[in-house]
């Protein structure tokens, strides 16, 4: 396994569509729930321990080779908002395109055939990590980090925040990222024996509710 592959996969410039998504930050900014750096930190922390943990566990389980179709169904059940399910599938499809060009693998081709309109992004991410020779920890790290880097980058654009402040928010979350990854991978390892119910199902009501409102806006900067 090449650890450098993790840098390629986790790079914010990896061309997999993430730049057009705010991870709920655009809706939270409009609602006045994010007005500055402190709110951003709180938002990211909440997202990390809910959607981020679930994504990390799904990615870890996919990287371990668990059935991606079952994992995709588990992701559906953990994503009540249809707007977020659609966003996750769009991102999954975009990541699939980038992954197949970067780390060609029969498993990726098979998943692309199974889900022509895209599987949930964390599932594709886990299989991509696998194709890149990475393990469940690396896959979970990517998913957990994306769950906070997306909103941080988006908020820099939305509120003209100082980019150093936004990056410092991410740096200060690092110990919690470690914890989330540990919890996610432990759950992912239990899937083989216990099935997908072993995966965490942590939810953030406002992320789900606001995603529906956001999807109905006629004019917006971000896709989600």
């Amino acid at each position: 396994m090449s650890r450098a592959a993790l840098l390629v996969l986790a790079d914010g410039r990896f061309p997999a569509g993430g730049h057009a998504h705010s991870g709920g930050a655009e809706a939270a900014v409009r609602a006045g729930r994010i007005t500055g750096v402190a709110d951003l930190a709180d938002f990211c922390r909440g997202r990390l321990h809910t959607a981020g943990l679930v994504a990390a566990a799904l990615a870890g389980a996919a990287a371990l080779g668990r059935d991606p179709v079952e994992l995709d169904a588990a992701a559906d059940a953990r994503t009540p908002s249809p707007a977020l399910r659609l966003a996750a599938r769009k991102l999954g499809r975009q990541l699939m395109r980038a992954a197949r060009a970067t780390w060609p693998a029969p498993e990726l081709d098979a998943l692309a055939r199974e889900f022509p309109k895209g599987a949930h992004q964390p599932v594709v991410l886990g299989l991509t990590a696998r194709a890149a020779g990475l393990g469940p920890e690396e896959a979970a790290y990517c998913a957990a980090y994306e769950s906070v880097s997306g909103p941080a980058t988006a908020t820099v654009r939305l509120l003209s925040l100082d980019p150093f402040d936004a990056t410092a928010v991410l740096a200060r979350l690092a110990p919690e990222l470690d914890q989330v990854v540990e919890r996610a991978v432990a759950a992912a390892r239990r899937v083989a024996a216990e099935g997908v119910d072993a995966l965490p199902a942590c939810s953030a009501p406002l992320l789900e509710i606001a995603a529906e409102a956001h999807a109905a806006w006629p004019v917006r900067l971000f896709a989600s």
């Binding site: 922390r45 909440g46 321990h49 059940a77 942590c202 953030a204």
Partner: peptide, 21 residues
């Protein structure tokens, strides 16, 4: 078709009372 967990209160993972949750 639905599997959702909500954790809140003292000792819950961080951010539960924040703008995302």
């Amino acid at each position: 078709v639905l599997d959702q967990e909500l954790a809140c209160g003292p000792g819950a993972p961080g951010g539960w009372d924040g703008p995302a949750v």
